[in-house]
């Protein structure tokens, strides 16, 4: 089942946390540092770092406040990092990329 907007996920291998701003059309195997992400508020008792360290090549890090999407051109997925960390976000083995946002002028 695709994730709902507002769903919050966390990494098993670092401090990274994300929120789903826009879900992908299909179900995705979202990972951070090579390990599956865990839904925050779920029953999981896996502690931060319990999944080991980020896998080589998936240790470029995730930046606080940045938006991420899938590398394919028509990816609708949008994740927002609410906490940064050492692991790289990926869908399966393919790293997510930064999503360029159109700057909007401040209105209030």
């Amino acid at each position: 089942m695709p994730l709902k907007p507002g769903t919050r996920l966390r990494s098993q291998v670092c401090t990274t946390e994300v929120i789903v701003v826009r879900p992908a059309a299909d179900e995705l195997d979202l990972r951070c540092g090579g390990q599956p992400m865990i839904e925050i508020g779920s029953d999981s008792t896996v502690a931060v770092g319990a999944g080991g360290t980020p896998a080589p090549g998936l240790d470029e890090g995730t930046l606080l406040g940045k938006r991420y999407t899938t590398a394919d051109a028509d990816g609708t997925l949008e994740l927002l990092a609410t906490k940064g960390g050492a692991g790289t976000l990926s869908a399966g083995d393919v790293a997510l990329v930064l999503k360029e946002a159109k700057p909007l002028p401040s209105s209030d």
Partner: peptide, 9 residues
């Protein structure tokens, strides 16, 4: 906020 503001813009 998430749809209209970029963090740290």
């Amino acid at each position: 906020i998430f749809s209209t503001v970029e963090f740290g813009n």
